[in-house]
Nucleic acid binder design. Sequence first.
DNA 1: CAACATTAATTTGGACGCCAAATTTAATTT
DNA 2: AAATTAAATTTGGCGTCCAAATTAATGTTG
Lengths: 411, 411
Amino acid sequence: MRGKADSDLVRRQNRMLVLETLRFHGPSARVDIGRLTGLSPATITTITLQLLQEGAIVERADLAATAGEGRRGRPVVSLGLNAEAAFLIAIKISIGTLEYALADYAGQIRARANVTVPTRRLSAQDFSKRLVFETQKFVRDNVITRNQLAQINVAAQGVTDNVNGAVGWSPAFRVSGVAITGPLADAFGVPCTLANDANMIAEGLIARKAVATHGTTACVFMGYGIGMGLVIDGAVYHGTSGSSGEFGHMNHIPSGALCRCGRRGCLEAYASDYGILRSAENLPDDTPCPTHAVEPEVMIALENAARRGDQNAVAAFKTAGAAIGLGLARMIALLNPDRIVLSGAGTRALDLIEPAIREAIELSVAEPLRQNLVIETLPIDRDMIIDGTIDAALRQMDAGLYATTQAMAAE
Amino acid sequence: MRGKADSDLVRRQNRMLVLETLRFHGPSARVDIGRLTGLSPATITTITLQLLQEGAIVERADLAATAGEGRRGRPVVSLGLNAEAAFLIAIKISIGTLEYALADYAGQIRARANVTVPTRRLSAQDFSKRLVFETQKFVRDNVITRNQLAQINVAAQGVTDNVNGAVGWSPAFRVSGVAITGPLADAFGVPCTLANDANMIAEGLIARKAVATHGTTACVFMGYGIGMGLVIDGAVYHGTSGSSGEFGHMNHIPSGALCRCGRRGCLEAYASDYGILRSAENLPDDTPCPTHAVEPEVMIALENAARRGDQNAVAAFKTAGAAIGLGLARMIALLNPDRIVLSGAGTRALDLIEPAIREAIELSVAEPLRQNLVIETLPIDRDMIIDGTIDAALRQMDAGLYATTQAMAAE
DNA sequence: CAACATTAATTTGGACGCCAAATTTAATTT
DNA sequence: AAATTAAATTTGGCGTCCAAATTAATGTTG
């Protein structure tokens, strides 16, 4: 049970519903919002009037023309999210790089920046300071003056603690416990959130309607690392501290191959780019892991070698597939998902690893658990982490705006 | 987002809140309900008046005396759930046995019955028929006349499909796809629900406040089989088809020991009673699994042998602990729970298996994921499945009653 | 033992939300 | 210009909640 309900809850929920509808379906007429939400025209008038007054949405006269096709009656007035209502910054922390994006309330990216930062050479405190410094620079460079900054969201690889807003362990750092949200919130005075990068991919898929709003979908990311975002009934599951879906560091073989996390036998040590490369080169499985990402060209060359019949390469991809397959089989037994979505650069080699994945699942998952299971590949190869981070931030901003009951009263 | 909100939603949610409060805290005065729910006295008066008129709750004059201790002012009137409001039947299906319980709306068990049925020798259809027959007999034996039967809930081991209300695979049956809820619903005309037995243990723990209403708790059951119920934010997670938490049939070692589910390498093949027994007796790991439960005496003898230093027995329990520990480690990586509760007869041997469990977790779970993790043992050894099934049924009945908006209008 | 104090529960009056139905608005068609 | 059509708004009513006033039931006290 969610707690007591009153008229305030009703208004907030319905305002949120209207905002979500506009975000999901794009600019829409009041009639359409009514049809999509199930709310009466009278209510839509009231709610949209408030949102217009607050500046969250705007009339889109520019879209009126489209309707003119023998359409009689009073023409519709399209309403859309007010792009200028607020701005957000999405930051992606990777090894050696900070990636910035500035987006407006409509979700459009207004500016980007990549900053080289020696993440693995800085202390926790120095990194926090540097992060604030670079963010201030990004804000200055893009003159967010009259436009208000409303939210900063950060995505990082590894184990993130999104309660305390710190990175527990990440390949990007040599140190642990790097504070992220605290310093940013202090410096900018806006809500800041830290999250795992794979979970942000899942957020992006939800926003793009690539994931159903019911049931359980596991969004697996394969590439330099292996990650997973779990979507349960349309919402990303974050776990207790925010680090659910550490699929890559789920144990595959006890005391097995060395992983860059320092442990042995993680799935990632067999199925990530560096794991595949290591086994293709017949290196001992305790060969130290590279601290930098494997160049795509190297992986593409290895894939092509495998396709030409290079036995070492073939075996390496097969090993990777078996690891992922067994990991998925274990996940399926635990969670009984209805859908698995594979994404990331690693899917480029899907032809080489998929048979082993399917074989492992068939071998170790009970038939009733897999008979209705859909496994599919997301063709989108580009980096979806920033996009998903923006989507998550927008959702939080909607939730902030919808709760603006007090602000209305104050005004 | 959950859809549009209106005054109907408000009333339903607050009625449900009042019912849940009474179920959770026992009979309470209106003032106390107000304090616990956050609703105003005026609202409590209105809601309780309706519930009294509908017969869902009753005044408990018998509890008035307890207050008399120098208490001034108008005495409280305790309200409690009306035990006679409705009745439910909980059924537990195990190998060779149907276990029945009749409970009232207050959760008190009014009658029990155990019926021997050759579950593994019947066809799917024959079992369905027999189930209806035995249930009819149970109803007749307990003369549920003026008292109305409102709900039938069934718990079964194995893979349950609670969407279609059929058992996919279970050690209780030789066949698969045994229809449960359909035949019962047809025969009795009341809502019927099928669920996995481990999930019902989790339901029981929630009702007994043994599980927090926030965060993620994994309730592991160890005994003849190995099961798990996942509680996320106070609600049992059932997965897509209702078979989440097949922890026992999560793969432990590929192509490993034979499991009674017919596959190889399941965790259960190493950590369940029969698995432990098999390895203690140094039998080949493809020795066919018994189709009946291992006698508790046999396991107790084995535990004592291990405690006396019998190396085979010690090794067998250690192997079991390692299997459970590694399984938990994998689950932790995926789900980042804040609490793990171990229960079931298997916890009797916890002294023998716990070191191996902890070792496996420490070896293969990243530190940030386990630093705030609590692992505890539930002393309750008795069979909690029937209790949990009753609790789940009561919750469904509350939800049915709270929705009784229409009934009120009709009346 | 009657007036007072205290606490529980109800009643009253008002606010806010939603909706149905009537009305207004802005276009096309005739 | 009048009729038609469809979107959006306004009006009036209903249901929910809450705060404050009132009533109810008991213990305390002079």
